[in-house]
Design a protein around this nucleic acid. Structure first.
Length: 477
RNA sequence: CGAGGCGUAGCGCAGUUUGGUAGCGCGCUUGGUUCGGGACCAAGAGGUCGUGGGUUCAAAUCCCGUCGCCUCGACCA
């Protein structure tokens, strides 16, 4: 078993060097490793297990909403990409292109999908004929590739896993409503599964998806006050339907174009929850996605009856549906404590001769670092269930409190700069023009994350003209 | 692509100024003592110093080229 004493000292400087802490944590807790191709990551079993739990929870929500899974090809003809003008302009700089296959140069280059609007649009064009075919609502779980210039595990990698949902509706109102419904679905998921508060709202023109009419996003606040775009939904209007001939005959017999929308979240969510909940000791995983929810560490394992008692407890908890691990390795208890704390397991149960004799068990809560030894072994199931629930609630409450304390209002450019320098989200008025948005980026290195539904500000934080939108500005990953 | 920095054992680094036997910590292997918070002792294994050329009796070290990586800018789920 690989030991890593360096880790403890290296993560100690979390306050001064947060991104380094982040990288150390994801690599050294064996979530990921770097791939041989620059900018790619290998997701190891422990990290992938988190993704599987995210998939399971999201998939259940999609199914309940009436969305079905499908799969579309990885390779997209170059000509598809160029059909929607804004789309190709937005993605051209970051696509990887296959030019050769089967030992020969291809007649038409193929792009490795950076997103699948084009190829799905192409298929929708074939599948949609009548108003009876609508709405058509699909989702696919897949990988995509975007050749990014700078990368960081989970937060931005050249290849990443995600889910992309795509729907066609007969009317723009329905497609727009679905765009907002999916945003709400994501928000609920972030809260109840990732225990992560988010800000949601519409994106500015500058920040919207290439080819969309409107983009909505959910933004999460990381430890250091920077924002992470954690999910997006897009209303495309008829842009893609027209580019790919997604037409149907309506009830009135008239041939018309459909209205499309799409939405996606990626493995970046794993990065988001690491940076939202983690501390100097490593990960803190929300119970709903933790690959191991309870780890049992035997104390004095060689003494008679200890391993047997641990095994029996494991069986009882597993039977209740908890993801439980018994660490019966040869390592010392102290080593195991640190190992599983680093990996973010929500609850640790220590069971030794003294506990067994008194019919009790010692529980340790990863998020609060509280340890108590008064818990009755006979009530293990209910104790664990209750504590997991509490951990989830407390994680959310703590993160929400931090986010709300770090939202400040700004009336001037100077206040905006002070706000983001202090690691805050800054709420400010904006006149709606691109020049002012660009200026914010220049003087504060901050971008417009999302806009509030209602404008409550009086004037633009940059130019002083009347405010059209109230915007959350922040530095972003 | 513009600016700066770094390539030496699996990981983190020293050694380069002043050329002269390839080093340290962690990790790894084996044996032993341990084990209610990363414990200790002993013995080992492991590197053509990113790469190509040059100078020299001799190059990790000096010179020229080249490749790769990191940080900061421009682009992004």
């Amino acid at each position: 078993m690989a030991k890593d004493n360096q880790f403890v000292s290296q993560i100690a400087d979390i306050e001064t060097d947060f991104p380094q802490w982040y990288t150390d944590v994801v690599v050294k807790t064996k979530l990921v490793d770097y791939g041989p191709v620059k900018g790619t990551m290998v997701i190891r079993p422990y990290g992938y297990a988190i993704w599987e739990n995210i998939q399971k929870e999201l998939d259940a929500r999609f199914k309940a909403a009436g969305v079905e899974n499908a799969y579309f090809p990885l390779l997209i003809p170059m000509s598809f990409m160029t059909k929607e003008a804004e789309h190709v302009e937005g993605f051209a700089p970051e696509v990887a292109v296959v030019t050769h296959a089967g030992g020969a140069k291809l007649e038409e280059p193929l792009v490795v999908r950076p997103t699948s609007e084009t190829i799905i649009g192409h298929m929708m064009g074939k599948w949609v004929e009548s108003w009876r075919d609508l709405p058509l609502r699909m989702n696919q779980w897949c990988n995509v590739m975007r050749w990014e210039k700078t990368t960081r595990p989970f937060l931005r990698t050249s290849e990443f896993l995600w889910q992309e949902g795509h729907s066609v509706y007969a009317t723009g109102e329905e497609a727009e409503r679905e765009t907002l419904n999916m945003l709400r679905l994501y928000e609920e998921f972030a809260k109840n599964v990732l225990c992560m508060p988010v800000l949601t709202g519409r994106k500015t023109e500058k920040e919207k998806f290439a080819g969309a009419v409107a983009t909505y996003g959910m933004e999460a606040m990381m430890h250091d006050g920077k924002s992470l775009q954690s999910g997006t939904t897009h209303y495309m209007g008829q842009n893609f339907a027209k580019a790919f001939g997604v037409q149907f005959t309506g009830k009135d017999g008239a041939l018309q174009y459909g209205y499309t929308m799409s939405y996606g979240v990626s493995t970046r969510l794993i990065g988001a929850l690491i940076m939202t909940h983690g501390d100097a000791r490593g990960l803190i995983l929300p119970p709903p996605v933790a690959p191991v929810q309870v780890v049992i560490v035997p104390i004095a394992a060689k003494k008679e009856g200890v391993l047997e008692a641990c095994g029996a407890l494991k069986e009882r908890l597993a039977a209740k549906g908890f993801r439980v691990k018994l660490d019966d390795s040869e390592n010392s208890p102290g080593w195991k404590f640190n190992e599983w704390e680093m990996k973010g397991v929500p609850i640790r149960i220590e069971l030794g001769p003294r506990d067994i004799e008194s019919g009790k068990m010692t529980l340790f809560r990863r998020d609060t670092l509280e340890k108590g030894d008064g818990y009755l072994l006979s009530e293990a199931e209910t104790v664990v269930e209750e504590m997991l629930r509490r951990i989830g609630e407390d994680l959310y409450a703590k993160a929400e409190k931090r986010m709300h304390e770090r939202i400040v209002n700004a009336g001037t450019a100077e206040e905006l700069l002070q706000g983001v320098d202090g690691g805050n989200f800054v709420r400010a008025g904006w006149c709606g023009c691109r020049e002012c948005e660009d200026k914010v980026k220049e003087f504060a290195q901050a971008t417009a994350r999302v806009m509030e539904k209602e404008n409550t500000a009086e004037k633009c934080v940059v130019c002083g003209k009347p405010s059209v939108h109230t915007v959350f500005f922040a530095r972003a990953y």
